[in-house]
Amino acid sequence: MKQTITLTVNGDEFQLAVDPRRTLLEVLREELHLTGAKKNCNEGECGACTVIMDGKAVSSCLVLAVQARGKKIETIEGLARNGKLHPLQEAFVKHGGLQCGFCTPGMIMSAKALLDKNPRPTEDEIKTAIAGNLCRCTGYVKILESIKAVVDGKG
């Protein structure tokens, strides 16, 4: 039986009737058509579905939509404002922190969750924050450079 939930996604409030077996990821992608968060491993191993829920990075494939009731969700689609990219997005473009781009939304959301709490993280703290985001293209070096550029104010 469907349940009515309210989600605040990227600042906008949505009332949705969801089947309890739908994950937050499925609702974001299929109901709200926010396809930035990717459905990949679907078991919390790859980080491609990472979104920020009440300020914390979570694997949205591991959250039931009904469990996200009343929560504030941030996705990659909410980062750019008035046509201007978020500093992390700009840094990933400028420093080539992506190749195929599939892991990028999750990678950036993990980085954002870190920087929101800790604007001056060490390299180890950055590595820990993105340890759950798999990238098969870049070898991570340019991703780290991109995040460090924002930390150092050279985004």
């Binding site: 919390g44 990472t50 990075a57 979570v58 694997s59 591991l62 969750a113 820990t128 759950g132």
Partner: peptide
């Protein structure tokens, strides 16, 4: 695990 799993 990872940050996004440890948060849950």
């Amino acid at each position: 695990a990872s940050t996004q799993v440890r948060n849950l």
